[in-house]
């Protein structure tokens, strides 16, 4: 068990999210920064479907009831285990009674805390992720509160060396200025060349309307040249919609499964985590890439993760 000592309603149990139920109106949900979740699980030898805690409200504090392994990844934030400061993207053995404290991030929005065996919630619709919007999954379908006690799964065998192990930054993680790569979407050609150019060159500003459902951006109005009524259609996280206001909204983990707004582009899966780590006031830019570029980026991320998993396994001693 772990006990939550200090939390906010935005902190929730998350895993890789739900698949196969978009056609029932069930959002993907899951971690907003999937590579950070995957790295945390990889560092401690967890199954890739293991659930962790997504921390978006700080300071966050929990206590371990039993000896286990813990990994902390994601946003740059000071984390301390039993008073000892942890390096970034770090995994370490925790003793029964130890407290883990995470301070507000200096860069980024969300920190991931994975524990050996994962947070053991019953599977709901194939996943343990909390859908905060719809109020199901995770721990009672809600954010974590002080006093919540979360059961843990069976921890993988072996222990980490004294002092723990860390992960190098994933691809692109250290370059905050890199644009979000997008593929043109269905209504791309409804916008004039000039507007498309504007979309892909200006600095967009993340507004306060940014949550697990989506992120509204501030900047110039994107006026659609060709106005036509769209029928409702399936959408995925990453979809950049342009509502009549002309200010784009990027759909994220808890996006509605269908929408009706024109779609100018879609953020490639490999870059979606950047919006999961964006805070109001951040500047973002878009860059249009090809299908092959999008695929190559995804492959690089998968290779990096596989490498991390192999390396972390070498450090585990029984």
């Amino acid at each position: 068990m772990i006990e939550i000592l200090s939390s906010g309603a935005l902190n929730s149990v998350q895993d890789r999210g739900r698949r196969g139920l978009l056609s029932s109106g069930v959002s993907r949900s899951g971690a907003m920064d999937l590579p950070a979740l995957a790295a945390a699980n990889a560092l401690i030898g967890n199954d890739r479907d293991a659930a962790a805690i997504e921390v978006a409200a700080f300071p966050f504090r929990l206590r371990f009831d039993a000896d286990t392994t813990v990994a902390v990844t994601g946003a740059a934030a000071e984390a301390r285990l039993a008073g000892r400061r942890l390096p970034p993207w770090w995994a370490i053995e925790a003793r029964a009674g130890d407290e883990l404290t995470i301070d507000p991030p200096t860069v980024g929005a969300r920190v991931y805390v994975a524990v050996g065996g994962g947070v053991d919630m019953p599977l709901l619709l194939g996943a343990r992720a909390t859908d905060l919007k719809s109020g199901y999954g995770g721990h009672e379908g809600r954010g974590l509160r002080r006093g919540d006690r979360l059961p843990l799964g069976r921890r993988p065998s072996g222990k980490l060396p004294n002092g723990g192990i860390g992960a190098p930054p994933p691809p692109g993680r250290d370059d905050a200025d890199r644009p979000l790569r997008v593929l043109p979407a269905a209504e791309w050609s409804d916008f004039s060349g000039e507007v498309r150019q504007l979309f892909a060159t200006v600095d967009w500003r993340v507004t306060a309307e940014a949550d697990r459902q989506g992120c509204r951006l501030d900047g110039p109005d994107l006026v659609r040249e060709r106005r036509r009524e769209l029928l409702s259609h399936g959408i995925v996280p990453g979809t950049v919609q342009v509502p009549p206001s002309g200010r784009p909204i990027v759909q994220l983990a808890e996006a509605n499964t269908c929408g009706g707004y024109p779609k100018i582009a879609t953020v490639i899966d490999a870059d979606l985590w950047r919006l999961g780590q964006a805070v109001p006031g951040d500047a973002v830019r878009f860059a249009v890439v090809s299908r092959d570029d999008g695929l190559a980026a995804l492959r690089a991320a998968a290779d990096w993760l596989a490498g991390l998993r192999r390396a972390a396994a070498l450090y585990r001693v029984s």
Binding site: G234, V236, L295, A302
Partner: peptide
Amino acid sequence: IDDVVPGMNNLMVAFDPLAVDV
């Protein structure tokens, strides 16, 4: 294929692009 999503006179198919050729 992860998801086959009928919309109104449209159909979205979501898949693992590392397992399925686009």
